[in-house]
């Protein structure tokens, strides 16, 4: 066994510092108000898409349920802050809790199905939730939606302009990304990977497959619920039309485009899909066609998304320059040492 000096951490730290500086200082100062609004929307979607990283990237389960829980979180927040007037932080936590509870009950049923049948049952769920969101006027405001929801306010400081909202959203987004990154390194994360790769091997390794899947489902719902809460406080408005099946497929596409197994990849995908309509204004009519074709090509040529491409490239670089620490196990280490 031998450890080399860890240059990895150094490089990683430097890159993240620069990225943070750019995101917190450079982006808001160079972007127009309109651009900030677009970016804010992207970050909200990003938080929901992180749930797909947990479900699909880590657990190998294709789920469209994100949009349902985003809706549940959104209406929970809307009701909490409109009818009870609770502070933002309580409203956000409330949204997370309500969607987790809903996910626990719904997931307990749906996860009895395996593979593609589970996937389709989540589609059914999206239809049911959409129908409820549109018709349950007392709680959702029906097709007209609910307006006048308070903006972000923490400890007496109010976010008013889009770039102030951006600071809040960015911070929440980064925290969520860090959470998911860390989740991968926990026993639950490993159990999820084992369920994805081979359910029988997972059982033999002492993994309770059903409970592991359920945990992932609930965590994904918490992220989606939080995204819903962020949405109502950012837009001050919520309507059922935001929670359609089409939006849900867009989430999956965002996650897959960037690389579903990694929060950075999902970030790339979310930003790309949100900015594409801005960059391709003249092609507006064909934009969804482009998505569809893009997804089909992506699945054939790089199922791991853009991030997969990038990590492959980094791996090669690392091997070439022998960067990074490596723990050697077994016979060959004696030869080297």
């Amino acid at each position: 066994m031998k450890k080399k000096i860890n240059t990895n951490t150094l490089i990683l730290g430097g890159v993240s510092l620069v990225a943070l500086l750019v995101m917190y200082l450079v982006v808001p100062s160079v972007s127009s108000v309109y651009m900030m609004t677009v970016l804010n929307g992207a970050i909200i979607f990003y938080v929901a898409c992180l749930g797909i990283t947990v479900m699909l990237g880590m657990g190998g389960m294709v789920s469209f349920a994100a949009i349902s829980f985003m809706g549940i979180g959104a209406y929970a927040s809307a009701n909490l802050s409109l009818k009870l007037g609770v502070p933002t932080i309580v409203s956000m936590l409330g949204a997370i809790l309500v969607s987790m509870l809903a996910a626990l009950i719904i997931g307990a049923v749906l996860l009895r199905l395996s593979g593609t049948f589970f996937t389709f049952s989540t589609v059914a769920l999206v239809q049911i939730s959409y129908s409820i969101f549109t018709n349950w006027k007392e709680v959702t405001g029906g097709p007209d939606g609910m307006g006048g929801i308070s903006t972000f306010e923490f400890f007496g400081v109010k976010a008013v302009k889009p770039n102030e909202n951006y600071m809040v959203l960015l911070t929440v987004g980064i925290l969520c990304a860090l959470f998911v990154l860390r989740l991968k390194k926990t026993n639950l994360g490993r159990a999820l990977s084992s369920v994805r790769d081979n359910e029988i091997a997972a059982k033999i390794m002492g993994v309770n497959v059903y409970r592991t899947k359920l945990a992932a489902f609930v965590i994904a719902a918490a992220l989606a619920g939080l995204a819903g809460s962020l949405m109502v406080h950012n837009h001050h408005f919520v309507a059922a039309t935001s929670f359609t099946f089409d939006q849900s497929t867009t989430f999956v596409i965002m996650a897959m485009l960037g690389g579903v197994s990694n929060p950075f990849g999902v970030f790339m995908g979310t930003v790309l899909i949100t900015m594409l309509p801005e960059w391709l204004k003249p092609l507006q009519e064909y934009i969804r066609l482009v998505y569809g074709l893009g997804v089909m090509l992506l699945m054939v040529f790089m199922p791991m998304g853009l991030w997969g491409l990038f990590t492959g490239w980094v791996k090669k670089l690392k091997a070439k320059f022998k960067i990074g620490h490596k723990v050697m196990i077994g016979i060959s280490s004696t030869k080297e040492g």
Partner: peptide, 27 residues
């Protein structure tokens, strides 16, 4: 995708196809 080891890729590809067909019909 028939030899793909990850079944999710084919599902998502059919999802992409459904978008493509829908958009072509719209056009």
């Amino acid at each position: 995708l028939r030899k793909s080891t990850w079944s999710a890729t084919i599902i998502i590809s059919t999802l992409g196809a459904s978008t493509v067909i829908k958009e072509i019909a719209k056009i």
